[in-house]
Design a protein around this nucleic acid. Structure first.
Lengths: 184, 184
DNA sequence: TATGACATGTAATCTGTTACATGATTAG
DNA sequence: CTAATCATGTAACAGATTACATGTCATA
């Protein structure tokens, strides 16, 4: 038995955007298509059903915008429950598993952290990320060492690319921590 | 009307692994669970159906392994058609769209390039990637400049993280090109 | 003989993609 | 008036996740 607080990445992206500012499905689609949170699809077949699911879970509520005789247009806003869910998603510590297959989500969580949970939470998040990375990187090097001899050249280079990228992320984490510590 | 050469990422990963060496579904699962091509799922519910689809398309063929009285175990190998499909996937140029939402796939393509299409193709691929990155990075900076003022601090830093990561990839590309040029 | 690793699969469900469909409003 | 953009949706399909189911073989 498990509780069904199982929201896909797109759902959280929508919650995060709606926390910043109420928006319609169309608005959200534009964010995904124009502003290069383009890793998510801007297709109506993804967004509108996702919004409906969030609404059914009570995480957002939609209201038809009223005003100077416009086309129907539904604005969605976070409910308190939705805000809580979003906050829980953002403040949970970074795990190894997320590092392996979910870098985008990690960064997305951080991106929202400031407005949703405050600067202290952002800093906390970065520290958690840093710890996870420092734990992970040596293992990557070890795996490379062990597999090296059996790999074709391009596979070897590809692996090094992954390691470098991870190390680059660690470096960024350090500088971001410094930035947040200066803020205090 | 469109031709249905539409294979998901997992399919290509399987083709690439099978090109290196015939393997069973179980073997392939182990690769995904242990060797940290962990971005793909190692669940049987993903792998076995994917193998069947590839077989139906004539890209691989499976044969029950015969030998010293073992449990049933099906070894899959690439067909010539499968090899051609894999080669086509690897040798097509890197596009902006892939950069935006498919970094993993780009690296996977490169990782297989050497054995599947030869060192010349690997070099070609890297040059294509480099060109795409040099085209992309300035746009990222521009988008940051334009959006900067409206972003909360953590979103700004997150954006910078993305840019840094991309620049890091470009740097890696340069060094990989150098490596391949020395090979010649 | 029972445990755990080997090896393969299926079924229910969820989500996303693609493509289509509808209609209102604005700009040229 | 007509094209483009705004705005919302649905339907068919493909693919992944999760959980379950089955059976073999080695070893302790």
């Amino acid at each position: 038995m498990k509780l069904p607080s199982n929201i896909p990445s797109l759902g959280y992206a929508l919650l995060g955007l709606l926390q910043q500012k109420p928006a319609s499905g169309y608005d959200l689609r534009k964010v995904f298509s124009s502003t290069s949170m383009k890793s998510h699809s801007d297709s109506p077949g993804a967004i509108y059903p996702a919004l409906r699911r969030l609404q059914q879970k009570g995480l957002i509520r939609g209201s038809i915008e009223e005003g100077t005789g416009l086309r129907r247009r539904q604005l969605f806003r976070l409910t308190p429950k939705g805000l809580a869910e979003l906050k829980a998603w953002i403040t949970r510590p970074v795990t190894r598993a997320e590092l392996v297959s979910g870098q985008d989500q990690i960064i997305l969580r951080f991106a929202f952290s400031h407005t949703v949970a405050g600067p202290a939470a952002s800093l906390e998040f970065l520290k958690s990320l840093k710890a996870a990375l420092k734990d992970y990187i040596p293992d990557l090097h070890e795996e490379l060492r062990d597999g090296k001899s059996a790999m074709p050249l391009s596979a070897l280079l590809a692996f090094q690319c992954g390691i470098r990228g991870t190390e680059c992320l660690l470096e960024w984490t350090r500088s971001a921590i410094a930035t947040y510590e200066k803020e205090k």
